[in-house]
Amino acid sequence: MGMDVGLLGSFLVPLSSAIAAFGLLPLARRVGFVDHPDARKQHGVPVPLIGGVVVFVGLVMAGLTSGLWHGQAWNWCLAGAVALIGIGTLDDIFDLSARWRLVFQGMTVALACAASGVYIETLGALFGGDVVMLVGLPGLLFTVVCALACINAYNMIDGIDGLAGGVTLITLVGVAILSLAAGHTGTGLFAALACLALLTYLLFNLEIPLLRGWKMFLGDGGSTLLGFLVLWLLVAGSQRDGSFPPIVAVWLVGVPILDMLAVFARRLLSGRSPLSADRIHIHHGLLARGLNARQALVVVVAMHGAMVAFGVAGTLAGWSELTLTLGTFVAAGLYFSLSLLLGGRSAA
């Protein structure tokens, strides 16, 4: 039965995303829902911002074929995704203020997590001693903070073609492996099928030869969706399902979070606001060193893949949570050092 559902989903998910892409791209051009080139954006022509919707359609089909939407908790995930992609799309159109965008994101995540019961209740035995518990309101508030960090990390990493989609794809592969290994076939199947929705988007975003002229971007709606999707799967997997220890979530989210923290730290150290505009993300540093966009994409996705592989291998091998925790500090130090080495421009 599981095999049949998986085969059906592996056909229907990319098909539904592709139909959405071919149907919405001409409409987006016609109504002007496009990203225009400017001083900070390197594409030469306006590009439709419908990637998030294309991925979302595939995710809906993934939930239907895996049966997850029948559960109340996942219904709230779907409702939260609809609301967040909606506010992200409005931001694409009207350029909303960061403050109100954060407020709406926080309220949406708080409601979805509180209503579903999917929120962070434990941090595990981070330092090898007692389990750190966050029951009730503190856990919910911490989940909201993590969600805002995750959502905006994916928005910030979305700087070159294929990057946000590529790192999300690797994360979902890790979640699928760990969930299936732990016997949680519903979550594992959904994560695996979600990969197919992302792959479909990436084929358009990277303009493979057969899709020349059909390029699309995620837009803020799409990057917001990916950040929320990753957050939900990591919380569900580490808290409700117990497929992996909470610290492994840090390894699975890897590069987007480390890059955001490194950029914020460098801005603060230089006396600027952490939200100021610049070109000091990891991909900007690689581009400044002479790599082209595709080479930079491969390097960053490989770095993220190494982090996800470490977290997956550590979980399957039964490494202690203390080992995995100490490893995150080493990874963060190496990443921050690389960020400083690569440099970048503080001006937008």
Rank of each mutant, 00 (worst) to 15 (best):
T325Q: 03
F228K: 10
I85K: 00
G333D: 09
L7M: 01
K41S: 01
A236T: 11
I257T: 04
V330G: 03
A347T: 01
S17G: 02
S320N: 00
G32T: 15
A348V: 08
I157G: 01
V230A: 07
N205C: 05
F142T: 15
I157Y: 11
V31Q: 02
G227P: 11
G213V: 13
S270N: 07
F244P: 02
V109C: 07
L231R: 14
C195F: 10
R294Q: 10
C77F: 11
L180C: 07
A331I: 04
F204W: 01
A302D: 15
R279I: 04
E207V: 10
L198T: 08
V299N: 09
G63Q: 02
C150I: 15
D220I: 05
G221K: 08
R101F: 05
W74S: 03
G242H: 00
L68V: 14
A306F: 10
D4A: 04
L148Q: 13
V13C: 03
G128P: 05
A302R: 09
R212S: 09
D241H: 14
A176Y: 03
V54I: 09
L338W: 15
G52M: 13
G221M: 09
T143W: 02
A194Y: 00
M133H: 12
I177L: 14
G285L: 04
P274W: 02
G344I: 00
M61N: 11
A164C: 13
D241Q: 04
A249W: 12
